[in-house]
Design a protein around this nucleic acid. Structure first.
Length: 266
DNA sequence: AATGGGACCTGCGCGC
DNA sequence: TGCGCGCAGGTCCCAT
């Protein structure tokens, strides 16, 4: 589900809603989502902790707690955080010092919760490439120069650049007029510059609209994100291109559904 | 190095 | 109505 804009939305709302509050209870309805430590330790060590800080690294949420530990959350495809929650779909619920519940939901059980001494040591986080916002055009050009791989899977590779997933990769490539199966190094300097610019613009607009609710993603409040109505290609196969009326195509790249306009994107 | 396939899971919508 | 199939905002692992 969530890519950088959705996780950023949740992060901002968590800051507003939860900073300084204490976790007074942990209710584990499905322990599968707790990757470490054991569910017993997880519950025991979280009880009484105060939420001191909330961070986002790419698609990962980090809640820094009193006592030094951090709760690290990767929502993967269907993870949700909802506050105040009603517990109906929750895999884990946290009771807070205001008496309200923070629900962690996850239909597919891919999501990962970890309680760690130092989130900086987590291998996945150490392996993250730079976020698009931290890249200058020349750096990005340099990074693409030696890459023969197809451009869409490349910009979704979290070790290459982080935060972009299947949906925003498709949208940014459409806006850049670049075919998703082009080899990275075949892009001209102009195209590389355009692509970085459009990745940043797409993510920024999506954040402004509080993310894209297609299926599962919701804001912390449980409301939908607004950005799906601005999608140009994602999920629109067979429908007319909003620029040229050509039918949007769907192909498979790197095992992921890939939507594009065969006329606009070359 | 790059690419494809499958795995992890649950549930929805579709065609028959 | 019911069944089987394809599909899903992510990531990892293995084979070629």
């Amino acid at each position: 589900m969530p890519e950088l804009p959705e996780v950023e939305t949740i992060k901002q709302e968590l800051v507003k809603a939860l900073l300084g509050k204490k976790i007074t209870g942990v209710f584990i309805h499905n322990p599968a989502v707790i990757r470490e430590p054991s569910p017993e330790k997880f519950k025991k060590e979280l009880g009484g902790a105060i939420i001191k800080n909330v961070l986002r690294k790419a698609k990962v949420l980090i809640l820094e707690l009193s006592g030094g530990k951090s709760l690290v959350i990767h929502l993967k495809m269907t993870g949700q955080l909802v506050y105040p929650g009603d517990g109906k779909k929750s895999r884990i619920s946290f009771r807070l010092s205001d008496g309200k519940m923070l629900d962690f939901n996850d239909q597919r059980l891919f999501a990962e919760l970890r309680l760690l001494d130092d989130w900086r040591n987590l291998k996945f986080i150490q392996g993250l490439g730079p976020e698009p916002f931290d890249l200058a055009p020349d750096q990005f050009k340099e990074m693409l120069a030696s890459k023969k791989t197809k451009i869409k899977p490349l910009i979704m590779d979290q070790a290459f650049i982080s935060g972009v997933g299947n949906l925003y990769a498709a949208e940014a490539l459409f806006r850049s007029r670049i075919h998703p199966a082009r080899s990275a190094q075949s892009l001209s300097d102009k195209e590389k510059e355009k692509l970085l610019k459009e990745i940043k613009a797409t993510l920024t607009e999506a954040i402004k609209h509080k993310g894209s609710s297609i299926d599962q993603y919701v804001q912390l409040s449980g409301r939908q994100g607004d950005y799906a109505k601005y999608h140009k290609v994602y999920g629109r196969q067979g429908k007319p291109c909003l620029v040229c009326k050509t039918q949007i195509k769907r192909i498979s790249l790197g095992g992921r559904g890939t939507y594009f306009c065969p006329k606009c994107q070359r």
